[in-house]
Nucleic acid binder design. Structure first.
Lengths: 179, 179
DNA sequence: CAATCCTTTCGATCTGACCTGAAAGGATCG
DNA sequence: CGATCCTTTCAGGTCAGATCGAAAGGATTG
């Protein structure tokens, strides 16, 4: 295959890995993800090991995590025992998955925590007076704002992802009009 | 001050720190940010050290980074030599800052990389024929989709943050109409 | 300008996340 | 069933990045 094509792929994979690292995703996991994203057909564990120079164990772990996230899927080719892995290649679908998972794992817990924090000071809000009361009220207000914001963002993402792929042109135009 | 109020603050700070860690922000930095977010008035370095149990150097570094990001600001109280730090407490403003910075540092580089990757295979697209050509075309298509997606998201964020607080209801409706 | 008070820097240390590779575990084949 | 082929696990090793704290730097004061 063309040398430039190979180089181009490698560059993309490397950068995607770096980006992942900045967003709290292990570099290798992001690299595997990128590799499968740009691969026209499913790859097996050994392919991944060879192309990215990582150990068998590491590859196995990360492939599994990616399957867990729903970003890649196991594929069985007829007449072959090996497992193969195929990347989701619809970008919108991919990001919907990522968003949903991260929301579930990281945003929702923080919303719950905020509610819990608020319930902890509920009595104080009734009981206290004067400056102390004021301080707790302000604290409570800030927490509410934060929770509201997070909930609004949730809704927004739902809407956008639903609009998604199909209406991309319309969506872009509509956005341009709103600016 | 009320014990539950203190506990509530601590819980929030701790969780915010954990969340930060999941998103590629050092736990301590996120904790300091949370502390200043829930503090009704500016704090000095020693306050932060005492409340979070971190060293002077660590506190100094992280405070500086937060100032760099624009998430907190230095405040000088009259009649006091010390520097104090105040957190941004408008949640929308806060997230706009975070989004803008991360986009500049992490999303824009990846868009540039994608364009670079595409220019690397431009010749192949003219030169190659048959299956090989097909493969490079598909690769190119996926990259384009990815870049398009990222650009749409950029625009979306611009619009949302501009609409912001005030017109959010309208925005959500406008988007809902597109579904 | 010496003293005081803060802030920042920086080399040493530490920590936790990531990775490796050998060994165990399972499935499928003849 | 034994052999073969893959996958997964896990006990350690490695390393980048986070943290510490002493020392240097800088500003303000009397």
């Amino acid at each position: 295959m063309s040398a430039l094509y190979e180089q181009s792929r490698q560059l993309f994979i490397q950068r995607w890995g770096e980006m992942g690292a900045n967003w709290g995703i292990s570099r290798t996991m992001a690299e595997i993800h990128a590799l499968l994203f740009v691969s026209p057909e499913p790859l097996c564990t050994d392919d991944v090991m060879a192309q990215l120079q990582v150990s068998r164990g590491n590859t196995s772990m990360n492939l599994r995590q990616l399957v867990n996230w729903g970003l890649i899927s196991r594929v069985h080719l007829p007449g072959d025992r090996k497992e193969y892995f195929a990347g989701e290649n619809d970008v919108w679908q991919m990001f919907e998955t990522i968003t949903r998972e991260r929301r579930r794992r990281e945003v929702e817990p923080i919303i719950e925590t905020i509610e819990r924090c608020q319930s902890m000071v509920r009595d104080d809000l009734k009981r206290l007076r004067g400056a102390e009361r004021h301080q707790v009220q302000e604290y409570n207000r800030r927490l509410t704002e934060m929770a509201d914001f997070l909930n609004v963002m949730n809704t927004l993402f739902n809407v956008v992802m639903k609009a998604g792929h199909k209406n991309l042109a319309r969506l872009t135009k509509a956005l341009a009009r709103l600016m």
